[in-house]
Amino acid sequence: MLYRLCLKSLVALAAAALPWAAQASDDPCFEKAQTQAQLNECAFNAWKRSDVELNHLYQQMGDRLRGDDQARRMMVDAQRRWLSFRDSECSFQTLRTVGASVQPLRQNSCLADLTRNRVTDFQRLLSCTKGAGEQAASECTIR
């Protein structure tokens, strides 16, 4: 019985660590952190860096869509809905850690991961016309 309880605890701990494990290997902040509070701060800063990059790319997309009011409105609407999705998704993913010391780490890691994915999407949209053939360029959302 005690063995199963310990095993369940170990599995829960490993699952809690997974979202930031990949991030930790790329970010020296995570390697230096020695307390939960420091890990939480690293995750928050990683999210904020991703968010700054996302906002920069969003501004570029808005600039490229200047003069195309319909596309610009759709972009704004899509981004608002994506932000709502991101926040809801991360709240859902961290539901079982609310109130725990690891919750800020999990929440901010989730926000950073989803934001980095969105950054990749924006980069792809912004680079669509670069080197694209005539047919492919005509299918680009951002021109």
Rank of each mutant, 00 (worst) to 15 (best):
L2A: 13
Y3C: 03
Y3T: 06
R4W: 06
R4V: 15
L5M: 15
L7I: 12
K8Q: 15
S9H: 07
V11I: 15
A12C: 11
A12W: 14
L13G: 15
A14N: 02
A14T: 09
A14Q: 04
A14V: 12
A17M: 07
L18R: 10
W20H: 11
A21Q: 12
A24G: 14
A24Y: 08
D27E: 11
P28H: 06
P28C: 04
E31V: 15
T35K: 15
Q36Y: 07
A37R: 08
Q38F: 14
Q38Y: 09
Q38H: 09
L39E: 04
L39H: 10
E41H: 01
E41R: 01
C42H: 13
C42V: 07
A43H: 09
A43Y: 11
F44K: 03
F44V: 03
A46R: 10
W47T: 05
W47Q: 08
W47K: 06
K48P: 10
S50K: 00
S50W: 00
D51V: 06
V52M: 00
L54C: 04
L54V: 01
H56Q: 14
L57H: 05
L57P: 08
Q59R: 15
Q59C: 06
M61D: 04
G62Q: 10
G62P: 13
D63F: 07
L65G: 00
D68N: 04
D68M: 02
D69G: 12
Q70I: 15
A71W: 01
R73G: 05
M74Q: 15
M74W: 10
V76T: 06
V76F: 05
V76N: 05
V76E: 13
D77N: 10
A78G: 08
W82A: 03
L83V: 10
S84I: 09
S84D: 10
F85G: 01
S88M: 01
E89F: 02
C90D: 10
C90K: 06
C90R: 06
F92C: 05
Q93P: 02
Q93A: 02
T94I: 00
T94P: 11
T94W: 01
L95M: 10
R96W: 12
V98P: 07
G99I: 10
A100I: 05
Q103I: 01
P104C: 08
L105M: 03
N108C: 12
N108W: 05
C110N: 08
C110R: 05
A112Y: 03
T115I: 02
R116T: 02
R116H: 03
N117H: 05
R118E: 05
V119A: 01
T120W: 00
T120E: 02
D121R: 07
D121N: 10
Q123M: 03
Q123F: 01
Q123C: 02
R124N: 09
C128T: 15
C128D: 14
K130I: 15
A132N: 13
G133C: 08
G133A: 05
A136F: 11
A136S: 13
A137K: 04
A137D: 02
A137V: 04
S138F: 09
E139A: 11
C140I: 13
I142K: 01
R143K: 13
R143C: 11
R143W: 14
